[in-house]
Simulated assay, not measured.
Amino acid sequence: MSVDSRTELVPLRTWFGLRWRGYDRDEVDDYVAELEAELRLVTADRDASEARAEALAARLVTVQEENAALQDGLHRICLTPIDLKGLPERLARMVALAEEERREVIRDAQLKALMIVGEAEQRARRLDEEAAEKRDGIREDFRLAMSARRAEAMRALAELRNVARDEADRIVTEAKIQSLHIE
């Protein structure tokens, strides 16, 4: 069975079997009638929204076509060179002023670009100098730390030599004493 959602609703079951302790038939009928009414409203709202969406989509296509035509016309006008001889004197003067202003804007932009490049180069040089100073500082710190470690190692070595010498002297002295006792 085919159902047209714009004209008919999905058929709802409006009858219920009676039971010994069943539901009140009038309440069930009223409830189903309310649901059908709400379903009709929702269906009508949906149909109206679909129609509105279709109308808006059609309007959007029309506006996009108009926009494309206007852009094409603007593009053609912008590409067409202006012949100053064919223009009235006032318009020719306006075009000349606009051309002069264009040259000034380009000149100003080039000057600003040169200034920015110069500033960037100065900053890069300054950063390079700072990096070199830090690198030299790190090298000097490393050299000092290595010198301190070397000096500490030399002190520890000298101390070990002294301890070893003292131990050797003690052993030699003990050996001499023992050799004297043995004789």
Rank of each mutant, 00 (worst) to 15 (best):
D4W: 02
R90T: 03
R6Y: 03
E167I: 02
R139A: 10
G17K: 04
E36F: 02
I106A: 11
R165E: 11
E36D: 06
D166P: 01
G137C: 08
E133A: 14
R123Y: 07
R21A: 05
A37W: 02
A58R: 10
S179H: 13
A109E: 09
R125W: 04
G73D: 12
L114I: 02
V172M: 13
E133I: 01
I116H: 03
R76S: 10
G22D: 05
E159T: 10
T80G: 00
H181Y: 10
T173L: 09
K134A: 04
D4C: 04
Q178T: 03
A69F: 08
R107T: 12
A131N: 03
R76M: 12
D108M: 13
R40W: 07
D108Y: 05
R93P: 04
E104L: 12
L157W: 08
L144T: 09
D141E: 14
S5G: 06
M1R: 12
T80L: 02
S2W: 07
F16M: 15
R90L: 00
L12H: 04
M94H: 02
A51F: 10
L79V: 06
A124D: 03
E174D: 12
A145C: 12
L111A: 06
D83N: 15
L35G: 06
E101I: 04
V105W: 01
L97Q: 10
L18A: 11
G73M: 09
E167D: 15
D136G: 02
L114N: 12
E104W: 10
L127N: 11
I177L: 13
A124G: 01
R125T: 06
I116R: 07
E66L: 10
R93F: 02
S5N: 05
D47Y: 08
A33L: 07
E34Q: 06
